[in-house]
């Protein structure tokens, strides 16, 4: 499983700045209108630079609220374990706050943050695969399964069983994707990112991202028989 994992380029903030935005990309031009979260990140950076840490922490809470759900979805789809995903999301946010001084508005905050999150998830996935060599593999922990069952509508047992099987089948199919295909698919599909944003996050060419995405979907359709 870990063999196909090809880590994304280093996402630590200083190195992130070295990647030049492609020409013609209006979203990454500093002059272009910044998204709300990017503006908020710049404000927090200013507060941190001025030493107003309490205020910075308060504002950072708003940033967390904006991205928390999406980040949890991505992390959960990557790791298939609620606790691991929870920790990965927390680590990503803490890392963002610690390095907020190196954030530059050249990039949307979402791209910067997602890149940090994905790298954390990849590291955790590697650690999990190392652990799986010694312990029995579990796609979805029983606690998570119970939580999913409890949170869902009070469907009949047959419906629950079918939904569970479907989830397991989809997870297994996604797991069989090539490392880059999986990353691109996850980001586009569960992270709601455009191929352009995925290109910025992964350092891959945008057309390469589209090719990976198309191949991932074709493979998934083949594996799932056209239906999830």
């Amino acid at each position: 499983m870990s063999g196909d994992l090809r880590p994304l380029p280093v996402v630590d903030a200083p190195e992130f700045e070295t990647v030049d935005p492609p020409a013609g990309d209006a979203r990454r031009r500093p002059a272009a209108a910044l998204s709300d979260d990017s503006q908020l990140a710049i404000e927090i950076r200013g507060l941190v630079e001025r030493g107003e840490m309490d205020e910075a922490r308060d504002r950072f809470g708003e940033l967390v609220t904006l991205h928390q759900r999406r980040a949890s979805r991505i992390a959960y789809q990557y790791l298939r374990d609620a606790s691991e995903a929870d920790e990965a999301v927390q680590d990503a946010f803490v890392k963002v706050f610690s390095h907020i001084g190196s954030y530059r508005e050249t990039w949307p905050f979402e791209v910067w943050f997602t890149r940090i999150l994905i790298n954390g998830c990849l590291d955790r996935r590697k650690a999990l695969s190392r652990r799986d060599r010694w312990f029995a593999d579990t796609e979805v922990s029983s606690a998570d399964e119970a939580r999913v069952a409890a949170a869902g509508p009070p469907a009949d047992p047959e419906h629950r069983l079918l939904a569970r099987e479907r989830r397991a089948r989809v997870a297994a199919a996604i797991d069989r994707l090539d490392g880059r295909q999986r990353t691109v698919f996850m980001l586009c599909h569960y992270g709601d990112c455009t191929p352009r944003e995925v290109s910025a996050m992964t350092g891959l060419n945008e057309s390469t991202v589209r090719v990976h995405l198309f191949r991932a979907v074709r493979k998934l359709r083949g594996l799932l028989g056209g239906k999830p």
């Binding site: 979805r73 609620a82 929870d86 939580r147 999913v148 989830r167 569960y190």
Partner: peptide
């Protein structure tokens, strides 16, 4: 359907209460 299932799966695990605790 892939997206819907995936989102429903994750949202069922990360309930509002859990997200609040995470925050």
């Amino acid at each position: 359907s892939l997206r819907r299932d995936g989102d429903a799966d994750a949202d069922a695990v990360f309930t509002p209460e859990r997200l609040r605790l995470q925050q």
